[in-house]
Design a protein around this nucleic acid. Structure first.
Lengths: 333, 333
DNA sequence: CTGAAAGCGCTTACAG
DNA sequence: CTGAAAGCGCTTACAG
């Protein structure tokens, strides 16, 4: 059997209350006693039971991370940063891949409640804003990578609109005037914002984005490929494509290859996210980088704020996106 | 405050023992009472506290997953399958990215002990086989993706040696006789096994793999690139390269591009793993596929076996690898 | 079929 | 500075 606080107390000839205080660096314990108790803990390989201490009303030191899919490189990178920041602060992370399906979301939410996680980071769509409202009232929560303006909740996002502007600016600077866009579902705010920023910047340069040049996609490579193929088949085919995530850009690259369209000589492609995929394609993708590492860390930090006792004003943090120029874009010829 | 078992018992006019039995489908409870109690739980939005039930000596329904890095696509895909199989069976997964660093491993192991996870899946190198031996004696554990022959522990691996054979066979069938290899650190058994299978099959065809054509790498793209560049610079440059994982293959692809060597016309590249990366490169990579989804699920299933009461004979499961032909390999010209 | 009671391993006032 | 005791929310023999 593993040692308990009673074993330590007995060995040390003190009460369990004293041992508890030593473990938690609380109260005043004489230095000698403290040293001795630590030595005994060491010797008996004692690890305090988080289960028991959680039951006493303290924290579980566990956070839940709801994302669409941990196998998606974007979310995997975000998860890594959540994990790292959490680990630094003594928290473990339970991963919950929801596939954006209501059923899975509900199941995971129930599990996280049963396990009494100290907080939840939500990077997935939720079935309804009510669910989110309810949730954030009972558990510290922060939404990451998307916006739910109707609900009072901490939010960490990339500055999508600005990112969209950056993308447009880069294409304009390269002389592109006939551009197309592959957006992820427009129901998602971040998707709309990217498009909005992109359009705005185009408009400032008197460039128009015709409705026919805008294709809505899911987040799958094949879908990006199919939609890009449509755009490339048009008579007045665009000279540049803005893809709202790396998966779509990969699809666009594949479509171009199949259509015999050279990237970047005949078609520039600019992506959004900047996951490892952007580094791996040929040509590597020029992309608007989301600060994935900082997104995750900021989400954890907001959660920590929420653990304080005073009710906090809900904050919204927008982290800067950044243009990373690689080889998939070039000047129009 | 959230409802407890006492609230339910009071409402229903029964003892908490009865409620407990209803929750756990244990003992005999009259159907009427059961229905009523369920209704009350529903009404009060009661969720039993896993914390409390874990303290009573039952399971925590939590598993730990130790991997080098959740942001690595291979491990992300494995993690997803561990998560899914775990979820089906009612278990949550705590992710632990170790970066293969002893310090992080030790910290995570301590955390997992404190949280009393029911089992641990180990997909990372451990500081020593003693640590693993010790661990597997105190906690149900299964090693995934690597072998530790000296320790009696459940193991799930891909059939690396067979995979190596498949790779060699494919290259031979395409007429290649001068081949090079990028291996991941040879200290890792799976890496050695891939190489062994590859060599064996070559030998059967009277083809030799000179020592100079074998380059040891870390698991980083840049390293693969650098080592591949070496091979490509040689006078008797190989016509085909076997890369022991997708990251290295991506590096090799980049080196070939920089050296002006056309893949697959002048150089065939065959990879190992078959993560999303293999789909995304240009040309897409011919690869030996590891059954990532089945690896994770099998690991969870072995853990479940271990939860039974009788001591189990430790098993070793080797899952078949498979050749996926894409466009990075071709017949020698 | 149902319940009283002990116990899981801690923390937290409270008293000294 | 230290300890006795209650309590966290369950489960599990055991008794009826």
């Amino acid at each position: 059997m593993r040692a308990t606080i009673y074993d330590i107390a007995r060995e040390a000839g003190v009460s369990i209350a004293t041992v508890s205080k030593v473990i938690n660096h609380k109260g005043k314990i004489s230095a000698d006693k403290r040293r001795e108790i630590f030595a005994i803990m060491e010797r008996l390989q004692y690890q305090p039971s988080r289960i028991a201490s959680a039951l006493t009303g303290k924290h579980t030191y566990t956070l839940g991370l709801l994302i669409p899919d941990i196998a998606n490189p974007f979310f995997a990178e975000v998860a890594r940063s959540v994990e790292d920041r959490g680990h630094e602060l003594g928290y473990s992370i339970i991963i919950c891949s929801t596939d954006n399906r209501d059923e899975r979301i509900a199941q995971y939410l129930a599990v996280l409640r049963q396990k009494q996680v100290d907080g939840i980071i939500i990077g997935t769509g939720l079935s309804s804003t009510e669910v989110l409202g309810e949730l954030s009232r009972t558990t510290p929560a922060v939404v990451i990578g998307r916006e739910v303006p109707s609900v009072e909740v901490h939010t960490v996002v990339a500055d999508d609109r600005y990112g969209g502007r950056l993308a447009a600016e880069h294409l304009l600077a390269n002389g592109h005037r006939r551009v197309g866009v592959l957006v992820e579902q427009l129901g998602i705010v971040s998707s709309r914002e990217r498009l909005r920023g992109f359009r705005e910047r185009l408009a400032e340069a008197q460039v128009e984005l015709p409705e026919t040049a805008l294709r809505e996609c899911s987040y799958r490579i094949e879908d990006g490929k199919r939609q890009a193929a449509h755009l490339l088949a048009a008579a007045d085919r665009p000279t540049a494509l803005f893809c709202c995530n790396d998966l779509l850009a990969v699809g666009a690259l594949q479509a171009a290859r199949e259509a015999g369209v050279d990237v970047p000589r005949q078609l520039s492609i600019i992506s959004f996210d900047n996951t490892i995929l952007a580094n791996v394609t040929d040509p590597p993708l020029t992309a608007i980088a989301q600060p994935m590492a900082r997104l995750g860390a900021a989400a954890v930090d907001l959660l920590m704020e929420e653990f304080g006792h005073e009710p906090t004003v809900k904050r919204r943090i927008a982290l800067r996106t950044e243009l990373i120029v690689r080889a998939s874009t070039a000047a129009v010829t």
